[in-house]
């Protein structure tokens, strides 16, 4: 029990250390959600697979929020002429990349881990967006 108490203290100390960064990120999320609207995002897509994939990954990577938001926005983008490649890329990068979280990741895991993780996630957003859409076309 004594050991658990000490472990709790250690965990609390960890929380206090990351608290400023956590609060900063939460503050930034509020700004992103309020100032970057789905209407702004729609204007960036044009229906071309490569262009939409690039835009989808860029926009998804800087967007923040609950995953269902990416489905809502993705559905609207499809209705407004964006390609499935672009929408898949957008959903993928929305849930796997996080530009807003980069400073926290860097401060906790270090530069090398953060770089490897995010570069791989970025590359896989392209590869998987293409593979998912292609597989879907083959099966439908």
């Amino acid at each position: 029990m004594k050991r658990f108490g000490q472990a709790l203290k250690g965990a609390l100390k960890n929380l206090m250390m990351i608290a400023p960064m956590l609060l900063a990120i939460i503050g930034a999320i509020g700004l992103f959600k309020t100032y970057i609207t789905p209407e702004m995002l729609k204007t960036l897509f044009n229906g071309s697979p490569l262009h939409d994939m690039l835009v989808g990954i860029s926009v998804g990577g800087v967007s923040v929020g609950q995953p269902f938001l990416s489905y809502l926005v993705g559905g609207e983008l499809l209705d407004n002429g964006a390609s499935f490649y672009g929408v898949t890329a957008f959903i993928l990068s929305f849930v796997t990349l996080g530009v807003v979280q980069l400073p926290l990741s860097f401060s906790i895991f270090g530069l090398r881990f953060t770089l490897i993780q995010n570069v791989l996630a970025l590359l896989f957003s392209f590869v998987l967006a293409f593979s998912i859409t292609y597989t879907l076309q083959v099966f439908s």
Binding site: A7, L8, G10, G30
Partner: peptide
């Protein structure tokens, strides 16, 4: 609304943070 959105996110993650730190201690 941006500030309210941030507060909403904060309230959402507090219980999850509590679970995470309990798991860390365990």
């Amino acid at each position: 609304p941006a500030l309210q959105e941030s507060l909403h996110v904060l309230l959402f993650i507090i219980p999850i943070l509590a679970v995470v730190f309990f798991l860390m201690a365990l």
